[in-house]
């Protein structure tokens, strides 16, 4: 196997030169071959991804396209407090659990949804404002509860306890955990959902819809896709009555 020491050193020197040149050519050819295959691989990969993207554009959690029966106001996974039998009138509220104005509206919304039970669909969309330190946490806590079919009770608890945890600059994780525990939830599942990036993505999807609709603050109400200006306590009720009559 081994290359035995050559007799003639000049011949071996010339030979070494030729071999070196050959080796260089080989390396060059190998590099070129490498680059060609690498480029083809990358191109093929890019084409496959592009094709899939073209076939399946934006079916994602905060996708821009809407599935059948969905709108920016109401998605298929949006939480409904009550559902109208005929589905003709829908009131959507973009809310922030840490916003005092939302808590101010809460008793009215509660009484309205009892009054119009079965006739008006009440939809809740998350819209935690960045200025509220625990608002996003609260939304995640409610969403985590929703995964155990406890959306409504957790939604109520948030407003009932807002003064306990709101307007503070410290994380309220433990407090929300306590709320969930008090409602007898499966705490392992709740905790997992609370920390799951998918839960946060679900909240942000609502926010994205709100932003696309031009929601500026909370609470913002849409009745059948029309912004309702709520100045007086009666405004909301009047708008609902008008929609039901019309």
């Amino acid at each position: 196997m081994a290359f035995k020491s050559p007799q003639n050193t000049t011949a071996s020197g010339a030979r070494a030169k030729i071999d070196a040149a050959r080796a260089q050519d080989r390396r060059r050819a190998a590099r070129k071959r490498n680059m060609t295959i690498v480029a083809s691989l990358v191109a093929a990969f890019a084409v496959i991804v592009a094709v899939f993207l073209a076939v399946d554009p934006g079916s994602g959690p905060d996708g821009d396209t809407l599935a059948a029966g969905e709108s920016r106001y109401v998605r298929s996974d949006s939480h409904r407090l009550t559902t109208a039998a005929d589905g003709k009138v829908t009131l959507v509220e973009f809310l922030d659990f840490e916003c005092e104005a939302c808590r101010g509206m809460y008793p009215l919304v509660e009484s309205l949804r009892k009054e119009y039970e079965g006739r008006v669909t009440f939809v809740v969309r998350y819209f935690p404002l960045p200025g509220h330190f625990n608002a996003e946490r609260a939304a995640r806590a409610v969403e985590a509860a929703a995964q155990q079919d406890k959306f409504e009770i957790m939604y109520q608890r948030m407003y009932q306890t807002q003064t306990e945890w709101g307007e503070k600059r410290t994380p309220a994780d433990e407090y929300f955990r306590g709320l969930a525990q008090g409602l007898g939830m499966d705490m392992a599942a709740w905790q997992k959902a609370y920390e799951d990036p998918a839960t946060l993505a679900r909240v942000k999807k609502d926010v994205a819809d709100g932003q696309a609709l031009g929601v500026q603050g909370t609470p913002t109400f849409y009745l059948n896709g029309t912004l309702v200006q709520v100045q007086m306590q009666d405004d909301l009720k009047k708008a609902i009555d008008a929609a039901l009559a019309g």
């Binding site: 991804v49 079916s59 994602g60």
Partner: peptide, 15 residues
């Protein structure tokens, strides 16, 4: 590829 497939929903929502 695994990352693309796993988080497909998210990536496709970005475009």
């Amino acid at each position: 590829g695994l990352i693309t497939v796993r988080f497909w929903d998210y990536w496709s929502s970005l475009i």
